[in-house]
Design a protein around this nucleic acid. Sequence first.
DNA 1: ACCCAGGGTCATA
DNA 2: TATGACCATGGG
Length: 222
Amino acid sequence: MSRSRRLTLRKAYEQLLAAHGPRDWWPGDSPFEIMVGAILTQNTAWTNVEKAIAALKARNRLAPQAILAARRDHLAHWIRPSGYFNIKAERLRQFCRWYLDQGGWDVLCARDTERLRQELLAVKGIGPETADDMLLYAFERPVFVIDAYTRRIFSRLGLVEDGLGYEELRTRFEQELGSNVALFNEYHALIVQHGKDVCRMRPRCSECVLARACAWQAQQSG
DNA sequence: ACCCAGGGTCATA
DNA sequence: TATGACCATGGG
């Protein structure tokens, strides 16, 4: 299939937005809360993360100093509903240690995106997706977040090549869409919504808005 | 009972 | 570099 008759990533975005409406991401009252949520939601349903965050808030523990001051087993107990609580308690500690050592929010905000990204990735427990969640939704940097839904949905429709690594896929979205924080924000949120509501794990979804738009596009140029 | 979720690390081949 | 085991809760 030629590039010209393929649905563009921009058109796919418009279809998703029309179908689902604005998602208003990321839920959270502060950048720090967003970053904590990014760690807690690793391979975990958001509803479970909400309970963990609510528990931290109820104890006034949603701050880096407060998390580091807590006993490890207590911290693990508070975030228990989000699953993997022992591992995630340690990851929260690692992240908070880094956050304070660097000098806190204002210092981090002054850094350029590439440096910030490399430093986040160097924190144990923060991988590419978690780092990019933080960069886009907390630091508001133009970084496109790739997740399992993104791969599944777009490779299934033939909009991206399969077998691309995380960085390659991210670069592809960023270059084709152009650097745009608001767009990246809404787009990733819409992909997650679409994945949950429409595609799930089904091997084919010929009736979804994206599949229809793809077929229509092919028909126009064919 | 089974499957999955808004992943990442580590050991092994 | 590329799989596989492991982490663990809660909702469908």
